[in-house]
Simulated scan of single mutants.
Amino acid sequence: MISFNYETDLQLDNEEDLSQWISSTITEEGFSEGEINYIFCDDAYLLDLNIEFLDHDTLTDIISFDYTLGKLINGDIYISVERVRENAADFEVTFDNELSRVMIHGILHYCGYKDKTEDEEAIMRSKENYYIGQLA
């Protein structure tokens, strides 16, 4: 089950479409959907989590807590709406496009994709682009 939670003024108007998209991504990657929580928040909220749990005193657009068991995807994905807005402007894409990218990025991490090296990042970007194309 995918749930959307809001700690900011953002309210998605297409939760059902996004849930189906995320579910189909999980299935296509060979996993099963467990409990996935998206929490949309602001920079301050996410910075507090980053400091408390990851010992990083930096702003970020996403923090995901992975509780996946085998092939059953479970986790909490925290997204800073402020970071997504700023990144969308920096990358010259729409807010919705960047938000979709960040949302699926967390799921791809749960499916085992990494982005620490250039090669890993290239694979991650390719997967993100592919699945964003599925949403359109």
Score class of each variant (00 low, 15 high):
G30L: 07
E128Q: 10
I26T: 08
L54W: 05
E33H: 08
I77M: 01
S80N: 02
C111W: 00
I36E: 01
G30S: 12
Q134G: 00
L12W: 07
M103F: 02
D55Q: 15
E33C: 14
I123P: 00
E121H: 03
I73A: 10
D13W: 15
I79H: 01
T27Y: 14
T60A: 07
I51S: 03
E16R: 10
Y78V: 14
S24F: 06
K71A: 14
E86V: 13
N74Y: 04
K71L: 13
K114M: 04
I2F: 10
D57V: 10
S32R: 12
I51Y: 08
I73W: 03
S19W: 03
I79R: 08
D57T: 15
T68C: 07
T94Q: 02
E98H: 02
Y6L: 08
N50M: 10
E120M: 07
L18I: 11
F31L: 10
Y113R: 01
Q20P: 01
S126A: 03
E120T: 05
M103E: 08
I123Q: 04
C41R: 09
Q134M: 10
H56G: 05
E121Y: 11
I22R: 05
F95D: 14
I73S: 05
R125W: 00
E28W: 02
V84C: 06
L135Q: 07
Y113G: 11
Y67P: 03
E92V: 14
D96L: 00
N5E: 15
C41E: 11
E7D: 15
E121S: 15
E92G: 11
I63Y: 13
H56C: 04
G70N: 09
Y110V: 01
S64K: 02
M1A: 03
L46W: 01
R85H: 12
E120L: 11
K116A: 13
N129Q: 09
Y130E: 15
W21P: 05
K127H: 00
R125S: 03
K114F: 15
A89D: 09
T94G: 15
G70R: 02
Y6S: 13
Y38P: 07
Y45A: 04
Y110C: 04
G70L: 07
T94Y: 01
S64H: 13
I63Q: 14
K71Q: 07
